[in-house]
Simulated assay, not measured.
Amino acid sequence: MHEQRLSYKEASPEAFKALLHTEMQVHKTGIEESLLELVKMRASQINGCGYCLDMHSKDAVAQGESLQRLVLLSAWREAPSFYTERERAALAWTEAITQISTHGAPDDLYNEVRKHFDEKALVDLTLAVIAINSWNRMAIAFRSTVGDYVSPHPKK
Rank of each mutant, 00 (worst) to 15 (best):
residue 21 H to E: 14
residue 38 L to Q: 01
residue 19 L to R: 08
residue 53 L to W: 03
residue 64 G to T: 06
residue 110 Y to H: 15
residue 123 V to Q: 08
residue 128 A to R: 04
residue 28 K to L: 13
residue 70 L to R: 07
residue 31 I to R: 04
residue 99 Q to G: 12
residue 121 A to I: 07
residue 82 F to H: 11
residue 141 A to R: 09
residue 131 A to I: 02
residue 30 G to A: 11
residue 37 E to K: 11
residue 46 I to C: 02
residue 13 P to C: 10
residue 111 N to K: 15
residue 80 P to M: 08
residue 49 C to W: 07
residue 13 P to A: 09
residue 78 E to R: 12
residue 70 L to F: 08
residue 155 K to M: 07
residue 5 R to G: 05
residue 100 I to K: 06
residue 155 K to W: 01
residue 145 T to F: 03
residue 84 T to M: 10
residue 107 D to H: 12
residue 47 N to K: 10
residue 67 L to D: 08
residue 127 L to V: 14
residue 143 R to E: 03
residue 78 E to Y: 05
residue 65 E to Y: 01
residue 83 Y to P: 02
residue 90 A to I: 07
residue 18 A to M: 12
residue 87 E to D: 09
residue 47 N to G: 02
residue 27 H to P: 00
residue 45 Q to M: 12
residue 114 R to T: 10
residue 151 S to K: 04
residue 82 F to N: 06
residue 18 A to F: 12
residue 120 K to W: 05
residue 75 A to E: 08
residue 48 G to L: 07
residue 102 T to C: 10
residue 51 Y to P: 01
residue 137 R to E: 02
residue 64 G to P: 03
residue 128 A to Y: 05
residue 124 D to L: 09
residue 140 I to G: 00
residue 76 W to D: 05
residue 95 E to H: 09
residue 146 V to L: 07
residue 118 D to M: 05
residue 18 A to K: 13
residue 62 A to N: 10
residue 92 A to M: 09
residue 156 K to L: 14
residue 76 W to Q: 04
residue 126 T to D: 05
residue 93 W to P: 00
residue 11 A to H: 09
residue 15 A to P: 01
residue 76 W to G: 04
residue 118 D to S: 04
residue 14 E to I: 08
residue 24 M to S: 11
residue 68 Q to K: 14
residue 100 I to T: 06
residue 25 Q to M: 14
residue 104 G to C: 10
